[in-house]
């Protein structure tokens, strides 16, 4: 169970949350190849995808304890609510804007990095999974206008950010376990859900949804993280090999997520799901509305100062 340090060989258990075929998981296998070659076998990555070692909250806790060494997971907020800050609604409206916000050098990135550091975890990079939209079984009222009642109830993850955003857009919300969401939409317990990219909507929900609205209000992201203790045991050269591999994949992820969003919206349309388009000006309006309405509600959670500083960085 503990990494064997014999003969300078270090085996790191790497936990992922997505299915093996998903590009985030594939990136782990690419990193594994590069790292094992680049370190000439001094570092071995043992990859466990698809929540095999537990869900992200559990994996995160274990990375802190050192019983799992590394992961590509959602950053859970159970220890520090600031780790949710990357999920602020309309942190940026475009993929490029999002990449800037979630890459080293930005204010948001530094908040997340510091918060993880205090918890004994090192952030290697943030991985871009994609913009989140709303998938629905029936057409809502005034879909592209924020604030007006949509006359539809959607499933939200148990995160205040998601719930507030969905409600400010004009949806009623329901808390339903993710595993039940498909059948809940299908049978009509709820009308749809927020929290997945066009890809997830295509892969898992295309048979139950009839409409997809790419609100781009939230951005799905995961972090490459590693326990600080184990990181410090790795020699600087080997650290560099890991960092280079991770940087390459992280940079690629944002561009991939843009292309993927387009691709899967097309696929959704082919599968008979109507895409309700949102124009650039409508998107700007939505973003402004949410930043003016939802953000103030989140001040008590993240601090007014932080939000002001993020707003500044947006200009």
């Amino acid at each position: 169970a503990t990494p064997s340090l014999a003969k300078d060989k270090l085996t790191l258990k790497v936990a992922g949350i997505s299915a093996p075929e998903y590009r985030g998981t594939k990136s782990l296998y690419t990193i594994k190849d590069i790292v094992e070659k680049g370190t000439e076998g001094r570092i071995i990555l043992d990859i466990f995808p698809a929540n095999q070692l537990g869900d992200y909250t559990q994996v995160f806790e274990e990375i802190r304890r050192g019983t799992i060494e590394m992961g590509l997971i959602f950053l859970p907020s159970q220890f520090d609510v600031m780790l949710e800050v990357g999920s602020l609604p309309f942190l940026a409206e475009t993929g490029e804007g999002m990449q800037e916000q979630l890459s080293p050098g930005s204010y948001v990135y530094s908040i997340i990095e510091d918060s993880l550091d205090k918890l004994g975890v090192r952030l290697l990079r943030i991985y871009g999974d994609g913009f989140v939209g709303v998938g629905l079984a029936r057409k809502p009222k005034d879909p592209v206008k924020a604030g007006t009642p949509k006359d539809a109830m959607i499933r939200v993850a148990p995160l205040a950010v998601y719930k507030e955003t969905a409600e400010d857009l004009g949806f009623r919300t329901a808390s339903i376990p993710y595993a039940d969401t498909y059948s809940a939409i299908q049978t009509g317990v709820c009308d749809g859900w927020i929290g997945g990219s066009s890809q997830i909507n295509y892969l898992s929900f295309r048979d139950v949804i009839k409409y997809y609205i790419p609100y781009n209000c939230l951005f799905d992201q995961t972090g490459y993280i590693i326990g600080k203790d184990i990181w410090n045991k790795i020699s600087p050269e080997d650290q560099k090999v890991i960092l280079d591999a991770v940087n390459e994949q992280a940079d690629k992820s944002f561009a991939d997520s843009n292309a993927e969003d387009v691709e899967y919206q097309e696929k959704l349309a082919e599968a008979g799901v109507e895409i309700i388009p949102i124009s650039g000006s409508e998107m700007a309006e939505l973003a402004e509305y949410i930043r003016n309405t939802t953000w103030p509600k989140l001040e008590s959670t993240y601090g007014k100062e932080t939000l002001d500083k993020i707003k500044e960085s947006l200009q």
């Binding site: 169970a1 503990t2 537990g54 869900d55 909250t57 559990q58 806790e61 274990e62 304890r65 019983t67 376990p177 595993a179 039940d180």
Partner: peptide, 21 residues
């Protein structure tokens, strides 16, 4: 025998069971 750390096993069971399903 394998040096598994009980400090993660107990919370693992706990987190797996925190399910409304």
């Amino acid at each position: 025998t394998h040096g598994y750390d009980p400090s993660f096993l107990l919370p693992y069971g706990f987190s797996q069971m925190s399910s409304i399903v």
